[in-house]
Amino acid sequence: MSAAQTETMAMGKAINAALADSLEEDPSIILSGEDIGQLGGVFRVTDGLQDRFGKDRVLDSPLAESAIVGTAVGMTYAGLRPVVEIQFDGFIYPAFDQIVAQVAKLQYRTGGLHRMPITIRVPFGGHIGSVEHHSESPEAYFAHTAGLRVVTASSSQEAYSTLRAAIKSDDPVLFFEPKAKYWSKGEVDRTVVRDLETAAVLQSGRDVTLATYGPTVELAMGAAAAAADEGIEIEVIDLRSISPLDVDTVAASVRRTGRLVVAHESQAECGIGSELITSICETAFTSLEAAPERVTGYDIPYPPAAWEGEFLPGVDRLLDAVDRTLGRKNSRDFMRGGAAA
């Protein structure tokens, strides 16, 4: 094999490349979703794929999310490997029954006699200033369901390699694409192979572990850079897989740092942070030197987007949580009547 070559691609282009390379490689792969053909998707992520691979492999589906997923289930019986797109995070709920009661359970129901090689692509998350139902983070609903794999990506490289792995998997995979990052450029080496269950330590640090995924990873890196200016070392972990969570990698980090902050855009209650912190308490409790902290969207419906900057985790809120784990002055000091001393 020749030396690996990298290309600079926006994340949306990297996803497009992963879809194109998959379609090229495996004739049993078929794409289905609303507006993904002629238009190339509302984010143009599937741009050009219908022209290149034909209308029978890149389907402009009717507007019916349950049917997009349900017909994909049927296609697997005919030996196909469907990759479907749900146009926006907040539009996935009509397909919830097919995903949770069928896609997730059919391998179990058939005792492994039938596989479910379906990839469900879902643009998710905020920071795009849009109206209701266009900025949600519903990943925890699916992480709660046995039989599904739930993954996301934080960069063009991760998006390319993880989507390739998702499409190759015989398990059903929900691939959550951080839509605010679609236009962020990065280097992509198409020979890089990813699995669907390990986290990555993006930056080492000895003071606090900051674990997050998808759109919040870049903020975590920003927080780490800012903290470094004050002499605080943050170890940044990109979880990559939301289900299963790579608890081992996070626990190993916490054993070094003694402190943990988990961040995500979705709400706190019964969220990924709750699960990860519980798992760390179960496995690395004696290493903890401070209570683990969460930085999440508040437990309210996604607010009008003019407020999303306050609702979503930002660098300052991440640093505030880091300060809490370190016992430094922080925003909570202002909660007990009056300003901090």
């Binding site: 078929i30 029978d56 492999r57 349950s66 049917a67 997923v69 349900g70 017909t71 994909a72 289930v73 049927g74 296609m75 697997t76 019986y77 005919a78 030996g79 196909l80 029954d97 097919q98 009661a101 069928q102």
Partner: peptide
């Protein structure tokens, strides 16, 4: 689940049509 399988039947038929089998 009531009616869920009708989508699977249609998906199978779409797949069979695609594969011309």
């Amino acid at each position: 689940i009531i009616g869920a399988q009708t989508l699977h039947a249609v998906g199978y038929a779409m797949g069979a049509q695609f594969k011309q089998d």
